[in-house]
Simulated scan of single mutants.
Amino acid sequence: MSAVAERQGTEQQGTEKQAAERRRRRLPGVGTVVVTTVLLALSVLFLYPFVWLVSASFKPRGEVFDNRLIPRTPTFENYINVWQEAPMLLWLGNTVLVTVLAAVAVTISSSMVAWGFAYYRFPGRNALFALVLGSMMLPGAVTMIPVFLIWNSLGQVDTLTPLWAGNLFGSAFYIFLLRQFFLGLPRELFDAAKVDGAGHWTMFTRIALPLCKPALIVTLLFEFQATWTDLMRPLIYLRDSANFTVPRGLKALLDRYGFGGEWHWEIIVTASVITTLPMIILFFVGQRHFVEGIATTGSKG
């Protein structure tokens, strides 16, 4: 009996030790607590401006800058007045058109150039690729006037064409990004396709592009965001308000209602919220593909 009792006591002690070990593992360590606290603090720091912007859009004119996150007298009139004070729907339509064309154009053109640098072997390939990368070192101000003169000679100033058509020639950054992904694809796969009679265009469209879908989505999202928020080119090329994109329209609203204007800041912040929401929605919709594309692209080459 004593042996049985001793064995039961040993088993009970072992069970208690295991339970204590599990409880200890469930308790967060000091490092975890510190990292979580820092991340929460940074999240609040980055989210606060947008939360303030949304809050201000529901405030009347006299309370916009009272720094309250919960409006004292909330109102929805700003979201009605902004459509009456500015052609927001027209500006949003122009922006969507330009953004989609720019994103699709740069994705297709950059992927074709990247495929050429990754798959084909020809003399001077590395030097030519270095030249492409070197174009990223040029500040935008250096090419601003020559590019404007080109579009002006073509009669495209005050049209939407200069805002997206330049992407038909690719982008050095996206070429580099996609080339790194193409280099990670097994060359034997394409050799087998050639044996089966596949041509170069077939290998590119039916094998290479489907395999680099995450990288293509990253390119689309990057360029979509860049074009949606671009203000410099609309300021240079657009004159007629009917052709304004959203950033150019917000600049016009700022000139009219902001500094030196009528001081209707509630209209400006409301328009800013309306134009920011599509980017937030787009990020959440493509978040999984975005993270996957960044992770896989970073591991290639």
Rank of each mutant, 00 (worst) to 15 (best):
I274G: 07
G140M: 08
L216G: 09
R7Q: 15
I274V: 07
F50W: 04
T276I: 13
F65Q: 07
V82T: 10
D158S: 13
T297M: 08
N243M: 11
E63P: 03
T36C: 09
F190R: 00
A141P: 06
A208N: 04
Q12T: 15
I281W: 04
P162Y: 11
W201H: 00
S153D: 12
V64Y: 03
F46P: 02
R24L: 10
T276Y: 09
F148D: 03
V195F: 00
V54D: 01
G62V: 01
A86E: 12
L101I: 09
Y257A: 14
P60V: 09
V104K: 08
E21T: 15
P28I: 13
D230G: 06
D230N: 10
G197C: 01
E21C: 10
S153R: 13
V218E: 12
G134T: 14
T245E: 08
W151S: 02
P123E: 12
L40G: 04
L69C: 02
I80G: 11
L69Y: 03
A41G: 09
G286S: 06
A252F: 07
G14A: 12
L250I: 11
Q8D: 15
V291M: 06
A193Q: 03
V44Q: 01
R239M: 11
P247R: 10
T275K: 04
L27E: 10
T75V: 07
F76Q: 06
I267N: 07
A208L: 04
L39Q: 03
Q180W: 03
W201K: 00
Q180T: 05
S135T: 12
G29H: 03
P210S: 00
G166I: 08
Y48G: 04
K59G: 03
M144C: 08
N126F: 04
L168S: 08
L128G: 05
I217F: 09
A86N: 10
K213P: 09
L254F: 15
I70G: 03
V54N: 01
E262L: 15
G155R: 09
H200V: 00
L47Y: 14
G301W: 10
R248E: 14
G249S: 11
Q225N: 10
S55P: 02
T245H: 11
T159L: 11
V147G: 01
V291P: 08
V104R: 02
G116T: 02
R61F: 01
L47I: 09
T143V: 14
W52N: 10
T36M: 12
R24S: 14
L90C: 05
F259H: 09
F176P: 03
I280M: 05
M112Y: 00
W263P: 06
T36I: 11
A165F: 10
H289V: 13
T37W: 05
A242G: 14
V147S: 01
L277D: 10
Y120T: 03
F222W: 15
G199R: 00
F50I: 13
L282K: 07
G62A: 06
Y79N: 01
V51L: 12
A105V: 02
Q156G: 12
F244I: 05
A102H: 03
Q225H: 07
L277M: 13
L97C: 06
Y48K: 05
A114V: 02
L282N: 09
D196C: 00
F204A: 00
E85V: 15
